[in-house]
Write a protein that binds this DNA or RNA. Structure first.
Lengths: 111, 111
DNA sequence: GCAATACTGAAGTGATCACTTAACTATTGC
DNA sequence: GCAATAGTTAAGTGATCACTTCAGTATTGC
């Protein structure tokens, strides 16, 4: 379910916005409330909540409400899924280059 | 220059679209012309060229025109930069959890 | 209980996005 | 040289995005 293309889509879309990446960055240093997340951002609390909802829908962030405070934390498995998608494509390319290199080296030996 | 936040922004924005990710996926298996990239996609050539321009502007893809054929290939360093951004945040979080675990284990020993 | 805090939700707006069509240029094969 | 191929460019459109403001609700501290 982590490699579900629809989920992947939501994750990359979530990461596409600089404000949301800044929020993820902040959360990578530890859990935070909505107001704490909002504090360094030059936008209304309301806008931050909307970004937060995007992050939560993507699975990158999980939140939990206790009393009037919503505490947010990163979901590392989701980050790992996005990371993995990129990594697989890069490795596929690099392995291809390696094979090509080997092939060229071999044909050189045979000449 | 690879960790330039503006470039990172362009890269994540480029990866946010499923058609563009499909193009990157195709290119991870080897270089391709614009028409080859377009072939599996249910959209006009023109739309594909527009997506390709986004990918190229982000640095994820490099293209080279020979005669009337534009050949596209992946730029693994750019993929690595996006990968690295995610990886750093995930690791920061996981290291934090580890330290927290150690701390809890220690205070347990002392009880 | 009442003010301050911490969010939440709806409605609106202007900007950007992902396309389309259509007209065009440049290159190649015959 | 002429048709087919390969891509490019511009203009337009409807959908989605990233906000805003404003009016609300629930919780907490005193």
């Amino acid at each position: 379910m982590l490699h579900d293309p629809a989920q992947l889509d939501l994750m990359f879309q979530a990461l596409a916005d600089p404000a949301r990446r800044q929020m993820v960055d902040r959360l990578s240093r530890g859990p935070a409330s909505v107001s704490q997340l909002a504090e360094p951002l030059a936008m209304s609390l309301s806008a931050v909540v909307q970004h937060l909802n995007v992050l939560e829908a993507s699975g990158l962030v999980r939140t939990e409400k206790l009393g009037r405070v919503r505490t947010c934390r990163i979901e590392p498995q989701a980050l790992r899924a996005a990371e993995h998608w990129i990594n697989e494509r890069r490795l596929a390319w690099e392995r291809r280059l390696d094979r090509l290199g080997d092939f060229l080296a071999e044909t050189k030996d045979e000449s």
